[in-house]
Each structure stands twice: as structure tokens, then as C-alpha cells.
Amino acid sequence: MRNVIAIARKEFKSYFDSPIAYIFITAFLLLVNFLYLWTFFVAGQADMRPFFGFMPFVFLFLVPSISMRLWAEERKMGTLEILLTLPIREVDVVLGKFLASFLFLVVMLLMTFNVPLLVGFLGDPDWGTVICGYLGCLLLGSSYLAIGLFASALSENQIVAFILAIAICTGMLIVGEAFFLILVPDFLVPLFEYLGLGSHFESMGRGVVDTRDVLYYLSIIGAFLYLNINTVEHRSWV
């Protein structure tokens, strides 16, 4: 566990060693604020459901860019060879890197505090729904991160890792969306709906925390971290 924390601390600090992190957070904040405020005054409703509603799609492009460098860069630069010959287990490295990117995601979400503040100032939102929505964002974002981290271990090119992560995330997102489900035989609809990353998110955005949804996200995260550990242990790239 000490190793996990040491790695997470180093990786988290590395994000802020380059200006990219600041540019990235700024871009994210501008984008979500713009998208939200675009309709906020028109709708005239003091709730954050639209805000959470477009998160699966905003995350689709932003989250893989948080995770893309974590393995790819180390592979490209060769630093992985020192890291993986230290007396630590691969699982510690995977968890450390995941934890660092998770903390970065938390920071990103915390920086959107102005939105609930504004809503609270102008109206009287249901705070339970807001907290629940943020929890959903965290779970969905973490699932994207686990997928992105796995994709990052598959290539030493960050751009390839990025695109691969988007491809997997998009695939897992649309299988549960309505426009895809109409193409699916009726008896398979519940299955695909269950597999979709987005369908579990919608109910959380409405303020419903269902343990099945939470378990779904946790198992997606677990599955991709497991695949990641396997990839790193086999290191078929050398």
C-alpha cells in the first residue's frame, strides 16, 4: 500500500509539472460552463440535470487524455524498465497510476463548484440530486479512466492510446443508448441496456443511487484494472 501511495503521489505531481494540466482544466471548465449556461437561463430551472446529462460525452474526450500518458510515455522513454525492476508488484504500479488519475479527476470536478454555487444562489435545487450526480460523474469518469489506463498500456504512442480509449469508451457507451437499442433484437435489449456505460449514469443524474449501478461501475473499473495488470505483467511489448 505504501508503494501505491508513493507512485500515486509522484504521478499526481507529474500532472502539474507541465502546463498541459492547467490548460486542460481550464478548457474543461470553460466547456462545461458554456454548455450548461447555454441552456440554463433559457430553461430557467434551478437544477443541474442538464449539467450531468452531457457529462458522459464531455468525459469521452477529456478523460482518456488524462490517462493516455500514464503507461505510453513510460514505455516510450524507457523509464518503465527502471520502475518495473524495482522490488514492487505490478498491481501496486497499476493501482498507483489509477489513483493519481482519479485524484486528478476529483480536482477537475471540484473546480466546477461555481455551477452548483450559481444554481444555489439563483434557486433552491435539490442538493441530494446534485451530490448524487457528482457521485455518478466520479464513477463514470473512473470507469473511463480504467479503460484509458488499460489502453495506455497497449501502445507506446500516446495518441494511439487516446484514440483507442475513446473507441472502447464510445463502444461501451452507445450499446446502452436508445438509438442503438432499436437495432438490437428485443430479448437482448435489457442485456445491452445493462452493459451500457451511460444508462447507469442517467438514474444517478436524476438522484437515484441504486447499488446495482454502483456495482456495475465498480466491476467495470475492476475488470479493466485487472486486464491492465495482466498486460503489464506479460509486457509483450519488449
Binding site: 505504501r2 508513493a6 527502471i82
Partner: peptide, 22 residues
């Protein structure tokens, strides 16, 4: 080719490795 993290400073790097070396 001595692969080290270019963005870390020397002291932080050595402390990091020492920490992971338990």
C-alpha cells in the same frame, strides 16, 4: 540510455526511488 523522468528534479527523483526501494 539511462531512462529517467525528465520533469523531475534530481533530489525528488532519488527520494522517489529510495522510497520505492523501501
Amino acid at each position: 540510455n539511462c531512462p529517467l523522468y525528465p520533469e523531475m528534479n534530481v533530489l525528488d527523483y532519488l527520494n522517489y526511488i529510495a522510497e520505492l526501494r523501501q
